[in-house]
């Protein structure tokens, strides 16, 4: 299964450029975040093929996953 992953904002610290991941089994977005090298404690949100998804979503072959930062102060 080939997944394309990229990041926006400060998550680019972990994924500077778009990259391809080859997965042997389907994983959730929360699991993919760790596989992609983003620390577990880092708050992120997920966009798959342009649509917002929650962490429990299971990725499919050829999905385009983008990690967005999640920040809440004001």
């Amino acid at each position: 299964m080939n997944i394309s992953v990229s990041a926006m904002g400060n998550i680019k610290e972990f994924i500077p450029d778009e990259m391809q991941l080859e997965l042997e089994t389907p994983v959730s977005l929360s699991e993919l975040k760790v596989i992609a090298g983003i620390p577990k404690e880092r708050n992120v949100s997920f966009v798959v093929n342009g649509r917002v998804q929650k962490g429990g979503y299971t990725v499919s072959d050829h999905d385009d996953v983008k990690f967005l930062m999640l920040v809440g102060a004001g």
Binding site: G9, N10, L68, M69, L70, V71, G72, G74
Partner: peptide, 9 residues
């Protein structure tokens, strides 16, 4: 809108 550290959206 939100902000933390050196990031915002």
């Amino acid at each position: 809108g939100g902000i933390e550290g050196m990031s915002g959206f």
